[in-house]
Design a protein around this nucleic acid. Structure first.
Lengths: 187, 187
DNA sequence: CTTGGAATGTTATAGCTTCTAACTAACGCG
DNA sequence: CGCGTTAGTTAGAAGCTATAACATTCCAAG
């Protein structure tokens, strides 16, 4: 990798970092290539040398988010967290680090946007670890599915603030729901 | 209500209807007051006589969505659907009629947007019916909560298209998850 | 070590958006 | 019947995405 490519990667990384900051403070709709360019001391259109358009930047963010989640889950599993409850906690904590990163991949989709094949492949990676942890081969896939819907059910409502003022302990909820799933053999 | 107010309500309704159409086809980000105004044969700024700004229009849509959901659930309950599984099916079908209406209220929130008190009150209305249907007073609230996280977990992933190509039957999933919840006395 | 071409930046511009300001026309209530 | 509220208009500021055309800078191959 020559110095040119190196610099290019560096700039792309800084753009993505600032994009995450904007998303965290004002959401995806407020993400502005123009604003990022000016923050970085360059003129608006210069950024289009690094990302062809707004969608391509968002796609890169989505890819990174999936990658981060998959790496986190996989390394936790390999480090000994092989039970469903433990993995659920890991996923929840990953989501809480940056709620909008989770919501970017599992929140409201934009109609017409189609995730590139490689991102869904990364998503499958996560699912594979879950299914592995679910054991009981006959029902592992199905249990993996229920794991996911239960975790996402609690997490998504929590991150969206729908538990505000409701005296709910989301961590306990996740632990209970996945614990119950892990206890039972079938459904 | 004089003819003036009557006309005003009529226009507001048409604006909201067209807004829903735009949201359904291109999502909330693409919702354009300008475009709606032109569709209705008036110039852009004219619309601001009816909605002070974009946020106020979206708030009105959110309120209507909550209202519609609450009415649907309440009337179903009063019409004899008093079991949790039945109510879950009702909610899912309501969501499938217009996925973006569901996602507008339970999907990714915009940072900084605070729902007006009356919308959360309508949301509580739905919860009240669920808790009523959950029976078993001691654990009714908690079971109502789990009802909600389970239904939302499946529904939200289904609407976001995360089950695509996965050979999943979301209806069966909801029925199973809520059925299991209804069977057990506690957790 | 020079030189040519690719990569990176610039400004200008079109076309869209939200939203304010200022002005005009119409409608209906007293 | 007139006066005031309401509803519409156009103009314009400020922001956005994105393209086009042009200038510069840097790397690499001869």
């Amino acid at each position: 990798m020559g110095p040119r490519e190196r610099y290019r990667e560096q700039v792309r990384d800084e753009v993505k970092q600032r994009a995450w900051e904007q998303i965290a403070t004002a959401g995806v709709p407020a993400l502005s290539l123009n604003a990022i360019a000016k923050q970085m001391g360059m003129s608006g259109p210069a950024l289009y040398r690094y990302f062809a358009n707004r969608d391509e930047l968002i796609t890169a963010l989505i890819r990174d988010a999936y990658r981060s989640l998959a790496d986190t889950v996989r390394s936790s599993y390999e480090a000994g967290t092989t039970d469903l409850v433990g993995l659920a906690v890991v996923i929840r904590e990953w989501a809480l680090v940056d709620p909008h990163r989770y919501l970017l991949i599992y929140g409201t989709p934009v109609p017409g946007y189609h995730a590139p094949a490689d991102t869904t492949a990364i998503s499958d990676e996560v699912m594979a670890v879950i299914v592995e942890a679910a054991g009981a081969p006959a029902t592992a896939v199905h249990r993996g599915l229920l794991f996911w819907t239960r975790v996402h059910g609690v997490l998504s409502l929590e991150l969206a603030g729908h538990f505000a003022g409701m005296d709910v302990d989301p961590a306990a909820l996740v632990t209970q729901e996945i614990g119950a799933l892990a206890d039972r053999t079938g459904q």
